[in-house]
Design a protein around this nucleic acid. Sequence first.
DNA 1: GAGCACTGC
Length: 696
Amino acid sequence: MSQFWKPGTERPRSSLVDDEEGGVLFYSTPPPSSSYGYANLEKQRQRLPVFKYRTAILYLVEYHSTVIIVGETGSGKTTQIPQYLKEAGWAEGGRLIACTQPRRLAVQSVASRVAEEMGVKIGEEVGYTIRFEDKTVQGVTKIKFLTDGVLLREMMDDPLLTKYSVIMVDEAHERSISTDMLLGLLKKIQRRRPELRLIISSATIEAESMSNFFRTRKKNGHATDDNGLKMEPSILSVEGKGYPVEIHYVQEPVSDYLQSAVDTVLLIHEKEAVGDVLVFLTGQEEIDAAVQILVEKASDKTSHFSGLLVLPLYSGLSRSDQDLIFSQTPKGKRKVVISTNIAETSLTLEGVVFVVDSGFSKQRFYNPISDIENLVVAPISKASAKQRAGRAGRVRSGKCFRLYTEDYFVKEMPAEGIPEMQRSNLVSSVIQLKALGIDNILGFDWLASPPPESMIRALEVLYSLGILDEDAKLTTPSGFQVAEIPLDPMVSKMIIAADTLGCSEEILTIAAVLSVQSIWVSVRGKHKGLDEVKLRFAAAEGDHVTHLNVYKGFLQSGKSSQWCYKNYINYHAMKKVVDTREQLCRLVRRLGIVLKSCQGDTQTIRKAILAGFFSHASQLEEYSQNGMYKTVRNSQEVYIHPSSVLFRVNPKWVVYHSLVSTDKHYMHNVIAIDPSWLIEAAPHFYQLKRPNPAIF
DNA sequence: GAGCACTGC
């Protein structure tokens, strides 16, 4: 597969096998699937680095309860190991082989690749499951790809995951919350089901700590169980097939990595051979600034910088902007993509030969005391730096320019990032563990323990919502109902309250809208138009009711994309809202919730919202000139976000959906309320916090 | 009058 090509000529064909670890490949030309004969595919399979280890892997899986596979990008482990297992008989007798991925797109693309290699139709012998999409057939499917979140959900019906013979947890090094939870629970399952085999696949040598975690011994001290199965995890390394990447460091620390990144791109263009450039910065604002500087340079037709084609890449981009990034670089041009971390794991760009690494990314941090999540620009880990550099070695040997010193890399950069578990609000995780019968949350065997303060905060929130009782057990029925609904527990509580109040139709719409990023198109510099359009939908009660108006308008337009375009509404987001709402309706009906509309009674709707969000109440500061509010819970200074329809309206009392913290704490999605509803919705909470209700 | 790294059920 190691083909080279001259710029301007047709690019070599590539396939998804090149990329399973790195996420999803975007083809600039459609893959020539018709030319893949079976024999051809078989040869390709045998050329993958992992093929040499086929016998070893099968031997280890046979005799060890847990196998840890350290494999670099492009080793082929994700697509091949499930097939080896199937060929060795692990799917016989109605059993299933599972392979989990952190991302939905990866699940779909890996599954279709494996189905193609096996010459079967996707959804039959090889299937996949992601939320809202189950492409498996019971009794037929033998290899199943799924997100780790889906496997966690499956445990609620089948706690010991009895239908699986082998579970491969892929991308474990990413340490997402669901991967960490899954690993802790799988360890528990293995104690009850010693015959279950686990394969943990990771790109980094964190294998040692992973191995320690899974090291279990029988009480009698033997390292094997009665059937001779070794309890000691084994570790196997598989090399990748990336090309070498030359690493360059700066001599002196840089004071302005943005400027330095721009300078480096210009230098590469001047001195280096052909090949696209990928620059890692932290966020949209920074990226747009860097793009602008470079575009200005490139627009000077007389300078040789006119050969630069500069493009931004972040998740908020529209479809059409994303298409530009994955299109072929025009003849005589050098493509420069300036990206967030999205290009580190989720998306793979072809043709990158040079990487510029700022050494920073935006990371989420959670403060359990204030209950606020913050996005902070923070230094990346060595593991991330390595991953970023690897992006330069996909088509041929490349170069990575790190905008930090070698000394810093060696002596100061942390080896691994902080697991997400330790940087997040844990309300959803705690309720999920409770639903799985894990009573002692604080004593759970975590791969890395979250801060006790975060767990205590989560328990408090769930208790105040009436989801947990005094003994920290799920309440009946609402605790169990909330656990069944795959949404934030505060949103789920709102849905359950709507059942009693008779406005479930409206609240399900609101829940669906809150689960997408934003239903408005992102408009830089076009705020005026958006604001005017918003007035057409704006409700005096606030944003949630405004969302209902938009949803109604969308349905009345016949779900028209034209209508969305005219109204500054994100069509794809609205389609997702409709989808999600449908799924939620189906789910809550199963829980015995009756769909009913309150026919525009916005007071009832707001009361249902309060049932979940009473702890997010804020009061306008008296005599406040600048719209300052204080939260009722802890007198935190907050403001209504300018995107809200209640911005500058400043009702005396509001309830917000979430806080966004930048230079100020902004309340996102706000409704106006009557404070007496708070006591009505949560007497326990408000009596508890305010023994003297004189403030009302 | 301002801004959202990235996922997932």
